[in-house]
Design a protein around this nucleic acid. Structure first.
Lengths: 200, 200
DNA sequence: GTCTATAGGCCGATAGAC
DNA sequence: GTCTATCGGCCTATAGAC
């Protein structure tokens, strides 16, 4: 009984620390993340951060892994979605999901462990996206060499990244035109259809 | 005579500080940039950083402005290039030019002055790219509504950003396929021709 | 324009008690 | 698992002499 209690406390504290870290990174950037700041945000003592995560590097790594796991799960759900291409585009352009990407990329520039982890996550997600896209293209009868799934995945990611990046600095100059263009293109591959397929 | 000497010294010191800041940002990220580190890298006293730039925020701002001016100049040169579309793609995918983008974007997340400046630079460059693309499309007789220049500019920037981003973390999974795809597309708009136009 | 000196503050991480 | 106490270090920025 007591052991279970301790484990629960441990996980709760860990989650609280990760949540606090994420909040600070979103609001003030990674450079503002310190064991003292995180502890204050979570209502804890700073030494607990070190107890649960060791170094600050390991804390960043754990936060990235949690975010990546969530992102991967959301992709997995698209494997059985009725209109995966459209859903994939929505997922890519979700600003909240992308909010920490620059912080992590900047961190990765000089933290080798994190760089490797981001690379691993990128490859894994790309691979899943390719499976999703293959199915979408197959179902629509689009020849795979017209839009190779791996190329499509990268280009969609790029377009979405640019849109989210610019939006984050308050620039929206060609956005509605680009959204129209991309959505037209995606619809030409995957026509809209109802969630429940109708006969015929 | 003496006044000129002072001004030269001033500019030299300023440049040395900016160069040192850039080096540190590339190697260890923006969080590693401190007045002491910059001064050490440049062989100066840390107080000179404050004398010449005031706060660290202003130093980051000045460095961004210098980089943006260089980038804008390189774009201007494309206004008279023989194959601007191809050159624009090269410029966008130049990894050295993009090296600090994540650092600045991460900084911009919580430094308002820098965010505004990056937004301004983004709009200005986008606008110039659109002019360049219009000319390229006109010369090739491609109808502007097939590839609207503003959309094309954003999509090229996005594709390039994704390629550079992944390359920076050591991922190259779909890169050669994507490069072939994009370059084929660009060549269908702007066929390769020699630097000196032949009569014909 | 560059120097010395210094104020005032936050940082990561550990040791040892409970 | 959480506490108190603490070491040693780097930080921004300013004041005032030259």
């Amino acid at each position: 009984m007591k052991a279970v209690r301790k484990v629960d406390d441990k996980n709760k504290t860990r989650e609280a620390i990760l949540n606090a870290t994420e909040t600070i990174m979103r609001e003030d950037g990674y450079a503002a993340v310190s064991s003292r700041r995180v502890a204050a945000e979570a209502g804890l003592k700073s030494q607990l951060v070190h107890y649960h995560f060791g170094t600050m590097d390991e804390l960043f790594l754990a936060l990235f892994q949690r975010a990546d796991a969530q992102n991967f799960d959301r992709h997995m759900q698209l494997m059985t979605a009725p209109n995966p291409l459209c859903e994939l585009w929505k997922l890519n352009t979700d600003r909240k999901g992308m909010g920490l990407i620059f912080e992590f990329m900047a961190l990765a520039n000089h933290r080798e462990a994190l760089r490797k982890e981001i690379a691993r996550a990128n490859v894994r997600t790309r691979s899943l996206q390719i499976s999703i896209l293959k199915r979408a293209l197959d179902e629509s009868g689009v020849p795979l060499d017209k839009f190779p799934p791996n190329v499509l995945s990268l280009l969609m990611a790029g377009a979405a990244l640019e849109l989210v990046t610019e939006a984050s600095i308050g620039v929206h100059d060609a956005h509605s035109d680009t959204l129209k263009f991309v959505e037209n293109l995606l619809q030409s591959i995957e026509p809209i259809h109802a969630t429940t397929k109708t006969v015929g």
